[in-house]
Nucleic acid binder design. Sequence first.
RNA 1: GGAGAGUUGGCUGAGUGGUCGAAAGCGUCGCACUCGAAAUGCGAAGUGCCGGCAACGGUACCGAGGGUUCGAAUCCCUCACUCUCCUCCA
Length: 447
Amino acid sequence: MGAPPTGRQHGLAPPAAQRHSAPMHDIRLIRDNPQSFDAGLACRGLEPLSAQIIAADAALRALQTDIQASLARRNEASKLIGQAMAQGDKDKAEALKAEVADLKTALPAKEDAERVQLAALQDMLAALPNLPAADVPKGDDEDGNVEISRWGTPRRFDFAPQEHADFAPALGLDFETAAKMSGARFAFLKGQMARLERAIGQFMIDRQTAEAGYTECATPLMVRDEAAYGTTQLPKFREDLFQTTDGRWLISTSEMSLTNAVREEILSEADLPIRMTALTPCFRSEAGSAGRDTRGYIRQHQFWKVELVSIVRPEDSDAELERKTRSAEKILEALELPYRKMLLCSGDMGFSARKTYDLEVWLPGQNAYREISSCSTCGDFQARRMNSRFRREGSKSNEFVHTLNGSGLAVGRTLVAILENYQQADGSVDIPAALLPYMGGITKLTP
RNA sequence: GGAGAGUUGGCUGAGUGGUCGAAAGCGUCGCACUCGAAAUGCGAAGUGCCGGCAACGGUACCGAGGGUUCGAAUCCCUCACUCUCCUCCA
């Protein structure tokens, strides 16, 4: 017990940043278009960095050139030594050995300098988020998001609708029992409530596999450093994750385990698109959100989610984002939950996203729309980190794939939405018609 | 948990400390033959980085990281992973 939770001491791989030299931004693009790179950063609310990056890159290349010249001479001399030995010219061989020895004494310092410079450049790049797509609205925060559409009409209540946190405990959503054993941000579901949550998950994954063409997957819930790095939970957001005693990370979303299925892979074009879905628990420390949504079931350390991941050719990723978002929308429509579709502005998007739609479900108890799904295209951003490529028909060279992810949907928040939208004056909750086949005869949650 | 065997290019799979970026086969591409295709024959072809307008040259890469050596795919160490057997377990 109590061993420090670092991977190294437990025999796991060293931190991914040390193992992977794959850049997350294409340095050549930055070199060629520094102004547009800085413009992209500005959209993210970041200071221009291209000058600094280009300087670091130039310094690195100067070091590399110097080192390569030394190595070239060493290799040349080594070959000559071999020849001299073969001819029995010992004096010549010894002279050459002395020359190589001189080169070698100078090399380590140069190589150290190169390593330092490379690490500096990579740290700089690894900390930078993906750049927004051209059609992403500019904005600093959620106020800059653009509403694209609304579906459904919020129900008219002939009584004052309550927040789920107020009436759901009577129906089996028990926070106090969970708190006894686990603390805040956990819930203990009982009876009909547990059944309803399970029904929601089953229903959603059935729809995504049967109708939207996603392949059902059951994935590990713990991953290593490299995987967390690949989908960009590392290195920047390590405080958002739970870590096991042997140094692995609990997934905060099955985006981590699904997307990393293609890490280090060279796919053939015929394999694409790959569409995967999984119903898994997700674990989040919620380190940065102390005090927010502390009441109710909206923001938990542990929740179920159906995730939708796509691996596609670059030219297909825009269309795939629309398709994926639609797959999520259909769940809300099937459950007859009113929602709106938001296009996130540059400042509100996640780290790895190029473009994101959020679906926000209507919560009458809160009198507000709340996020229930987030669908993003990451372009090649994650693929670069994972080194996930594909080979086109008849082509010899490999290209990075594009990756997309989205929730279809978050189960816990869907439960909340059903509770609040289907609540009745007597404190009961009707079951949406689409879920009845999954409810084992239960048609209503009753106190 | 214990013992052993492995990790080489798009894939399968050889590989002696220097002539190994690496045999061979498959697959890919080009050409020939063909009305066309198949079969056959001949030929081409790894990736990143650096320099160069380019031709091209240099450098690194044989799981990862160190080490030995004038020189490492090859020898040594550490780690990760895969497989087989034993043990244990839902």
